[in-house]
Simulated assay, not measured.
Amino acid sequence: MSGQRGRLANATKLILYPLDTWKSRRQARRFGDVGEFRHLQGLRGVYRGVVPKLLLYSPYQAVYMSAYVTARDKLLQGPRPFGDSPLSFVAAGMLAEVAGAAIRLPMEVSKLRLQLGAYRNTWHAFKDLMMNPGQLMRGFVPQTLMHDCSYSACGWFIFESGRQWLFSMRGTSNLPVHENLLLGFGTGTLTALASWS
């Protein structure tokens, strides 16, 4: 089951990746970071950076989710102000982002720089990041601490609070698949709206 989920996630990334490339290049143009991308057109051009994304996304998710579940379970059993409180979900989400940043930052930096043509290929990206690991830390505070931690905290707060509410309404801790899907969809939508405003 998890292998099938992983293949589905990778297929989804491959299908949607050109949109990610388009967004990255559009943002780069808007902020004046780079010029035109005529030399990066075509199928190979729009899929530049997909290799680090595909190689590192599953390990990132594994680290993120194991850190989240471990932190959540420990905090829920801990003393105040955590314990049986939504603050446990918020703190666990933030801790998971910090733990996952060790994989996500190199993945995102190399993907973005490949999309924008700053690196020739994946090997060039790998060598540069290994020789200059400090460049990853420049994105740690603004990206991980300011954006990702707040996004994750908000998302887990909404998701887990909704789940707890459904558990108490049903008198059971099992939710049907369609309710989990709806809860995930609603969480993603509300979190995106909250972080956008």
Rank of each mutant, 00 (worst) to 15 (best):
M1W: 04
S2Y: 14
G3K: 10
G6F: 14
R7N: 04
N10S: 14
L16E: 05
L16C: 07
L16N: 06
L19F: 13
W22S: 14
W22D: 14
K23Y: 14
S24V: 14
S24T: 15
R25Q: 11
A28E: 15
R30G: 15
R30K: 14
D33Q: 15
V34S: 14
V34Y: 14
V34L: 15
E36K: 09
E36R: 10
F37K: 09
H39W: 10
G42A: 03
R44P: 12
R44A: 15
V46S: 08
Y47I: 05
G49V: 02
P52A: 12
K53Q: 13
K53W: 13
K53M: 11
L54Y: 03
L54D: 05
L56D: 08
Y57T: 13
Y57G: 12
P59R: 03
P59I: 03
Y60N: 00
Q61E: 12
A62R: 03
M65S: 11
M65T: 11
A67Y: 01
T70V: 06
T70L: 10
D73I: 04
D73Q: 11
D73E: 14
K74V: 15
L75Q: 11
L75V: 06
L76Q: 09
L76M: 02
G78N: 05
R80L: 12
F82S: 11
G83N: 00
D84G: 00
S85A: 09
L87G: 11
V90D: 07
A91N: 06
A91D: 06
A92S: 10
M94I: 13
L95A: 15
E97S: 03
V98K: 08
G100E: 01
A101N: 02
A102C: 03
A102G: 04
R104K: 06
P106V: 03
S110A: 15
K111Y: 01
L112S: 08
L112Y: 10
R113V: 07
R113F: 13
L114Q: 15
Q115S: 13
Y119M: 06
R120F: 07
R120Y: 04
R120K: 11
T122N: 08
D128V: 04
L129G: 01
M131Q: 00
M131R: 01
Q135A: 09
R138N: 01
R138I: 04
R138F: 02
G139R: 00
P142I: 02
T144Q: 02
H147A: 08
H147N: 06
D148A: 01
D148G: 00
S150M: 11
S150L: 12
Y151E: 09
Y151K: 10
A153F: 06
A153D: 10
C154Q: 05
G155Y: 00
G155F: 00
F157L: 10
I158Y: 09
I158V: 12
F159A: 08
F159E: 05
R163Y: 07
R163E: 07
W165R: 07
L166R: 04
F167Y: 12
S168T: 10
R170M: 08
R170Y: 05
R170K: 08
G171E: 01
S173K: 14
S173M: 02
N174Y: 05
N174D: 09
L175K: 07
V177S: 08
V177P: 06
H178T: 10
E179I: 11
N180P: 07
L181Q: 12
L181T: 15
G186W: 09
G188F: 07
T191D: 02
L193H: 01
L193N: 03
A194W: 11
W196I: 03
W196S: 13
